[in-house]
Design a binder for these strands. Structure first.
Lengths: 207, 207
DNA sequence: TATTATAGTGAACATTTGTTCACTATACAA
DNA sequence: TTGTATAGTGAACAAATGTTCACTATAATA
C-alpha cells in the first residue's frame, strides 16, 4: 500500500496548491506542473491515490480532488480584531476576538498587535475613516502627541482612538476632528485614563 | 458594508458546503439549494460578497468561490508591492516587486491583488495619505466613479490613483483633492487611458 | 518466458460551470 | 417623481475540466 514516487509527488503538489491557492488544481494543471502532456496518466494516478485512501473526489465535478487527511497546518500568527474591550478586562482576553485577519501581525513592526474597528469620524483629520481597522500595539504608556487606543474609567467604556497630550499633571485626549472637543483630565482624574496601546497601522477593506 | 439577508444565506451555505463536502458548491448548486432558477442572480450576489470582502474567487475557474475569512485560513499567498509600473509592461511582470507583505491577498476579496505605494496628497479627500499602500485588484475596466490605478500613454508614465468618470465618448480622471484639476480625455485620447485595476483596500504602516 | 503494476502519449467526448446580456420587479431614499 | 441597490428570470456562450479509449514502454516478479 506504499506510494510510488510519482504518487507522492502528485499528492504533495495537490496539498501545496490547496494550501496556497485555496482551490484544488485541475488535472491539466497537475500535468502542466510536471511537464506531462496527457491527462489520462495523471488521472490514473489520482484513481490509485483514491484507492489507497489518500485522495477523495466527487466524480465528474471540477476540482474536487482533495486529500482525505487534513494536513494539520500550523498557521502563522494572525491578527485578531477586538471589536470592543470591556472595561477592566485585560487585552489578552481571547473571548472578544471578532475576527482573525490573515495578516502576519509582524507586518506592523512587532508581534502581538491587535485590531479595532474604527467607528465614527473623530479621526478623519488623520485620514482614518469609519470602518477602518486600526492596528494597535499594546502598551501601558505612549509619548506626548501619539495616537493611542484609550479607555477612561467611568467616562469611556470602550476603547477609542485619541491623540494623547500630556501636560503637567494632566492628560488631554484630542480627536483629530475640530467638531470634537478635547477631553481634559487633571489630578486624580488623570489616573483613570487607561492606555491600551499605540496606533501603529491601519487596514481598510471593501473600498 | 453590511450584508443583506440573501447574501448572508448564500455565504453561510458556501461555508457549510465546504465544511461538509470539502469542495465549494457550483453556482448552479447554490441556485438549486435556494430553489432559484437562474444563475445570474446568484452570480451577482457572489460578486457583491467579493466586493465586500467575504468571498474570493479565481475568475473563470470552476468551484473557486470560497470564503476569505470566518472559515478556514488555508490561504497564505502574499501581497506584492509594485512601486512603479513602467509604461507598457503587463501587470504580472514580476521583476518590479519591491516588497512582499505577509498578508493574504484574499483579505481584500480576491487573489492576485497587488500594492502600490501612494505618493503625494492627491487622494486625501478619500483619506488616502502619502505613504499608504493602495491595494489594487487587476482589471481592464472599472465602473463609473470608482477609484482605479491608471496610466495614460504619453501623459502619465507611472501608475496613479484616480477617480474614473466615464461620460459619453470621454474619460475624466479626478483627484480627490480640490487643488488638482481633473484630466479630461476625449475621442482618440480616451483610448490612451490604461486602467491597471481597481482600488480595493489600503494598508498604512509606521504611524 | 509471461504477467502485473506503473507511467506516459494522444485524441476525443460530454458536461459542468463561470460569466454575461437583456429584461422585470421591489424597496428605499433624495 | 427619479434614481439606486438588490433580486430574480431566461437564454446563451465559451471555456474549463473530468473521464475514457487505445496505444506504447519500463521495471519487477513469478
Amino acid at each position: 500500500m506504499d506510494l510510488t514516487r510519482r504518487q507522492k509527488e502528485i499528492l504533495s503538489f495537490i496539498q501545496k496548491e490547496i494550501e496556497e491557492k485555496g482551490i484544488s488544481p485541475s488535472v491539466r494543471e497537475i500535468c502542466g506542473h510536471f511537464g506531462l502532456k496527457s491527462t489520462s496518466g495523471v488521472h490514473r494516478i489520482l484513481k490509485a491515490l483514491e484507492r489507497k485512501g489518500y485522495l477523495a473526489s466527487a466524480p465528474g465535478k471540477k476540482r474536487s480532488w482533495r486529500p482525505t487527511r487534513l494536513q494539520g497546518g500550523l498557521y502563522k500568527k494572525r491578527l485578531s480584531v477586538l471589536g470592543q474591550i470591556a472595561a477592566g478586562l485585560p487585552i489578552d482576553a481571547q473571548e472578544e476576538v471578532l475576527e482573525e485577519l490573515p495578516v502576519d501581525s509582524g507586518l506592523f513592526g512587532q508581534e502581538g498587535c491587535f485590531g479595532l474597528y474604527v467607528r465614527g469620524d473623530s479621526m478623519t483629520g488623520l485620514h482614518i475613516k469609519d470602518g477602518d481597522i486600526a492596528i494597535i500595539r499594546p502598551s501601558r504608556d505612549v509619548e506626548d502627541g501619539e495616537v493611542a487606543a484609550v479607555m477612561v474609567e467611568g467616562v469611556i467604556s470602550e476603547a477609542t482612538l485619541k491623540i494623547v497630550r500630556k501636560k503637567k499633571g494632566r492628560v488631554e485626549l484630542h480627536a483629530a476632528n475640530p467638531l470634537y472637543e478635547p477631553l481634559v483630565f487633571e489630578g486624580a482624574d488623570a489616573e483613570g485614563v487607561k492606555i491600551l496601546g499605540r496606533l501603529v497601522g491601519l487596514i481598510r477593506r471593501g473600498i
